[in-house]
């Protein structure tokens, strides 16, 4: 007998259940299809503008920095300014995300290169498909235009998120993702990012920049 059959058999023996019990199967299917929500904290259940403020407040609480611009065309200027203020090189690495690609980067001095990171890029730029106000969390998905390496290898990570994509809670984000990718399907990687990388493994001292970015800057658009 394979390990699989042995394990499933032992589980059924322990639970004293039968494989042919249709009632149990129906319960499982109902949960997987119905995906009931549990308790969603009131904290994030706010009108749009307050949601954005809570998102920014929570992201700053975990040592992220947040800027805001009115429209996508303003992003390159805001990014250039951030790089200058922090004495960072005017060069970013990004994927081919349509929102970012459509921005007027030529109006700035920032040099833009495209593709995944090999660890040599000081600054990565990504587009988050959503934000979660509850905890100041960014939601980034992998795909042809969004390399996951950009979220982890560069020392500085700049993430653009549309104000209208900032949800109150995780549950809303899952609903939206399933609408986009099909029920029961997710992109290869979904990264929930809440602040820059950190470790407290040495004497419980909190230090930023363990293996991932030392700095996380968020640009909210709209």
């Amino acid at each position: 007998m394979s390990d699989r059959e042995t394990i499933l058999g032992k589980i059924r023996r322990s639970l004293a259940v039968d494989t042919n019990d249709v009632g149990r199967r129906a319960i499982v299917i109902a949960r997987l299809e119905g995906t009931p929500r549990g308790i969603v904290p009131k904290r994030g259940q706010l009108p749009a503008e307050q949601r954005v403020s809570l998102f920014s407040k929570m992201a700053e609480k975990v040592s992220g920095s947040v800027g805001r611009v009115a429209k996508p065309e303003d992003v390159p200027r805001a990014v250039a300014e951030f790089l200058r203020e922090n004495n960072l090189p005017a060069a970013i690495r990004t994927g081919g995300d349509p929102l970012l690609a459509g921005m007027p980067w030529d109006d700035t001095q920032v040099e833009v290169s495209h593709g995944p990171s090999d660890g040599g890029d000081p600054v990565g730029l990504s587009h988050a498909v959503a934000g979660v106000a509850e905890t100041g969390t960014l939601v980034l998905t992998s795909g042809p235009d969004n390399p996951t390496t950009l979220n982890f290898l560069p020392e500085t990570h700049i993430v653009v998120v549309a104000a209208e994509d900032i949800a109150g809670d995780y549950e809303t984000v899952w609903d939206d993702l399933q609408k986009r990718h099909g029920k029961g399907h997710l992109p290869r990687t979904v990264n929930l990012v809440t602040g820059p990388s950190r470790s407290a493994d040495i004497e419980q001292t909190l230090l930023l920049g363990a293996h991932g970015p030392r700095r996380l800057h968020i640009v909210v658009v709209g």
Binding site: T135, R188, L192, T194, G195
Partner: peptide, 14 residues
């Protein structure tokens, strides 16, 4: 409130 990285992985690269 949440750890810095909560990562959901589904299958190999597409």
């Amino acid at each position: 409130d949440l750890s810095v990285y909560t990562t959901f992985s589904t299958g190999p690269r597409r």
